[in-house]
């Protein structure tokens, strides 16, 4: 995963609260290997009708190549399915701006280089109002922690740990392996003081 500090792209507003993971990617698509791409599944049942025709009125179908999504509160609530993030990322989304995010979704997003930028409800509404269906260029800075659209610049919040990770594109597994000694010591202490933490015997076979 490569890091980034600024992003400029086309914004699109989805003026809804509680866009949950089951809307982001319906369960029936989740047996697909990632290599086949998940972008076509993003918000599938909102983008397409039951016959598979595009719904022309849906925001995502009115903008070409958006990369910044502005949405209502509790975005990504629900399931831990990282496929919801894959669908966004494979579609081309790099930043989601919303008043709040599901905790697991936000963590999955950061693990895939997708920024969950938390703004207050008024700021989200202000950004969405300026987009109002028309294309618009949005600038996002992880250095200044701001989202800008025309003459409107709003601050966003993100956990400091996640900000560093997005900027550096850190790979956790490599990072963790540098702590192998501490991990081994912890395991040994666990086995000594809470032997039941490590299953033994017949049941464990």
């Amino acid at each position: 995963m490569s890091g980034w500090t600024t992003h400029t792209g086309t914004g699109v507003a989805l003026d809804r609260d509680n866009i949950d993971t089951d809307q982001l990617i319906p369960a029936r698509f989740m047996s697909t290997p990632r290599s086949e791409g998940y972008g076509r599944f993003l918000l599938h049942d909102l983008r397409y009708d039951a016959e598979g025709r595009e719904r022309p009125e849906f925001a995502l179908n009115r903008v070409t190549g958006p990369s910044v999504l502005i949405a209502g509160r509790n975005f990504g609530s629900g399931s831990s399915r990282e496929a919801a993030v894959y669908a966004l990322v494979d579609f081309g989304i790099r930043v989601v701006v919303a008043p709040s995010f599901g905790d697991i979704f936000a963590s999955n997003a950061v693990n895939n280089g997708l920024l969950p930028a938390r703004v207050d409800a008024a700021a989200a509404a202000g950004l969405a109002a300026r987009l109002a269906g028309a294309d618009a260029t949005v600038q996002v800075s992880l250095e200044d922690l701001t989202v800008s659209l025309g003459d409107l610049t709003v601050p966003f919040e993100i956990d400091a740990v996640w900000r560093e990770k997005l900027i550096n594109g850190w790979d956790d597994i490599d990072l963790t392996r540098t702590h192998a000694g501490a991990i081994a010591a912890h395991r040994a202490a666990r086995a000594r003081h809470q032997p039941w933490a490590i299953p033994r015997g017949e049941a464990a076979r």
Binding site: I104, N108, N111, N112, V161
Partner: peptide, 20 residues
């Protein structure tokens, strides 16, 4: 607590997880 696929891979590989 529930985790996503990147974290599942991390736990498989290291038996640990980063969490605030």
């Amino acid at each position: 607590f529930g985790i996503g696929a990147t974290e599942v891979a991390h736990v498989l590989a290291t038996q640990t997880v980063w969490q605030k």
